[in-house]
């Protein structure tokens, strides 16, 4: 069963209407400029749990949607407090 993504413009739509987009995040502790470039290009947090992600509603309103997803249970969850 496919999960649904709540689009603020179109309502809840099946995940297959969307293209996954990552929200890159270079940790603040990395200060060296080359290290930051390397991290942005190649290093991933690869969260096992809840993460913020962007989905492009390609077969819909063609806008970016931001949601939190639990990558272990594969469900959209509310913003963690």
């Amino acid at each position: 069963m496919s999960i649904k993504i709540p689009c603020p413009h179109c309502g809840e739509r099946p995940i297959h209407e969307f293209a996954y987009g990552e929200v890159p995040e270079v940790p603040d502790e990395i200060t060296d400029i080359d290290e930051r470039d390397l991290d942005r290009a190649f290093m991933f947090k690869n969260t096992e749990g809840v993460q913020l992600e962007a989905w492009y509603h390609i077969y819909g309103c063609r806008r970016w949607v931001y949601v939190y997803r639990d990558t272990v249970r594969d469900v959209i969850v509310p913003k963690p407090v």
Partner: peptide
């Protein structure tokens, strides 16, 4: 597939997505 978690324990970030 669980390598990023173990790498994090070492303080490492990896070029891996699961």
């Amino acid at each position: 597939g669980h390598v990023s978690r173990v790498a994090k324990m070492a303080g490492l970030r990896l070029p891996i997505r699961t």
